[in-house]
Amino acid sequence: MKAFDYYRAESPADVIGTDARPIAGGTNLLDLMKHQVETPDRLADVNHVGLDGIERDGDGLRVGALVRNSDLAADPSVREGWPLLSRAILAGASGQIRNRATTGGNLMQRTRCYYFYDLDTPCNKRAPGSGCSAIGGVNRIHAILGASGDCIATYPGDMAVAMSALDAVVEVEGPNGRREIAATDFHRLPGDAPQRDNDLQPGEMILSVRLPAPLGGKHIYRKVRDRRSYAFALVSVAAVVVMDAGRMSTVRLAFGGVAHKPWRVPAAEALLQGQAPSPDLFDRAADAVLDGATGQGHNDFKIPLLRRTLNAVLAEATEGSK
């Protein structure tokens, strides 16, 4: 690990506008620092700045950036109104990691692309301009949607996929004040600047995540992976489906493990919304989601896998509803 300066921040003001790298749970950042993929000069320990509460916000909820994943998943209001979020969080990591990992830190976690971790290989995300080893390399876990010629890495998390489907809003503050970013737009596509995972600007800090009013309906988070627990998603589907008189009155879908960001396709939701469920309709929704999907070789299987997973989730969400 490279040497760094450390200080304990007492409030967000000790961090905002500085060049210090915030460290909260540290479960991803410290790992990357041990590998020397991350080499911050200065760490700001944000574990004591507050921002660790979950509070009502009208009909919605405001979740502080320092709320631990375990607390968020177990919170009675979240379990009641936004069970998709609890399920997504509980599908990720281990009990030990969730006890440390925070809401803000989870959003900031970086890709698990093998080459990003391997200092001996080119990687545009780690060393801009050096090339992408995953293209034409081992790319079983990589993106099938929204990738670029410079990077085919995926965003690895689960929590943000649920937040995207729930239309959550990320509240951030920088030297020029506060602003809001839709959770769906927080992470970005790699384009020609894959070193930038998300839209957070230098000097900005995540303060909280706002969840809009509960949607009701069925909340399903289906995660397909190489082992049953403590593994990243190959494909995940986050779904909220509200049934009314035999038709899907509200549909929200987001996909994990397939792109550089949680993948949301409004056209697929619009296709389903207001319709009676049927396998044929689900298949057409999958067509819309997979519009432009491209395999890289080892990850070609993700294309049919996403289709099958979406079909299964929609069948489960709508079964028994007449």
């Binding site: 304990r8 790992d31 320990d45 440390r100």
Partner: peptide
């Protein structure tokens, strides 16, 4: 998980935490 200890009542991986924190 070999490094698991209990901090303030909760299990964590002690390898992924700095002592100063």
């Amino acid at each position: 998980g070999a490094c698991t200890v209990i901090v303030n009542g909760r299990r964590i991986n002690s390898c992924l935490s700095l002592a100063v924190m």
